[in-house]
Amino acid sequence: MVCLPLDAGAHKFRHMADRRLREFGCEQNLLSRPDGSASFVQGDTTVVVGIYGPAEVKVSKESYDRATLEVILKPKVGLPGVAERSREQFIRETCEAALLTALHPRTSIVLILQVIHDDGSLLSCCLNSACMAAMDAGLNMRCLFCGVTCAIDLDGNIILDPTAKQEKESRAVLTFAIDSVERQVMMSSTKGAFTTAEFHQSIAICQKAAESIFQFYRDSVGRRYSKS
């Protein structure tokens, strides 16, 4: 983090160096049982995802015109609570907009996410790993999506991809899912209060960061297919 000295005239400098994503990495097809699996690492935050589908569905849950998508998020310790349910809803609705569920009616697609370690930006790591797992399983998708988190600290600076410590010290944390076709906001989850200007600025920063994540998707898929 580069610290610039404050002027005597009470202007605040923006920390330019915090507009970088942490180091991220991913592994596909690491589990043998699920139809698709992936693990995504952002800094220290790690999430492993297994996806099954299109598979059989219970008659009570089946839908006549589309696949029923189910998401289960398991926290690192303890039983899943209300916060996990809320995150499951975010992930499920984002995946439903990206997957072509109308091609597989009366089937079910189940996504199971396991949090291995949480060091901030958990929801965006879950979204990234879910997208990679869906690609690995060969499900038909309308577009790709990626998750980016940014935090607004007490001075008004915007930090991209915050760690758990940075999240605690900031006054607002915003997570967005950006789609790959038009780079628009697919999902938005916010914590803390912020102004409209800060909101639009965060979206712009996250859209730029999404470019590097999409390029990473392309590179990792390229590497996978170059072996065969």
Binding site: N29, D35, G36, G53, P54, A55, L100, H104, M135, A137, G138, L139, N140, M141, R142, V221, R224, Y225, S228
Partner: peptide, 27 residues
């Protein structure tokens, strides 16, 4: 024409295109 699976684009004369992808689940 939009791609909906990740993989390598293949071509067969005269005008057939498809995406070669790795998958375990059978449809």
């Amino acid at each position: 024409v939009v791609v909906c699976k990740s993989g390598i684009l293949r071509h067969k004369e005269p005008n057939l295109y498809w995406v070669d992808s790795q998958q375990t689940r059978y449809v």
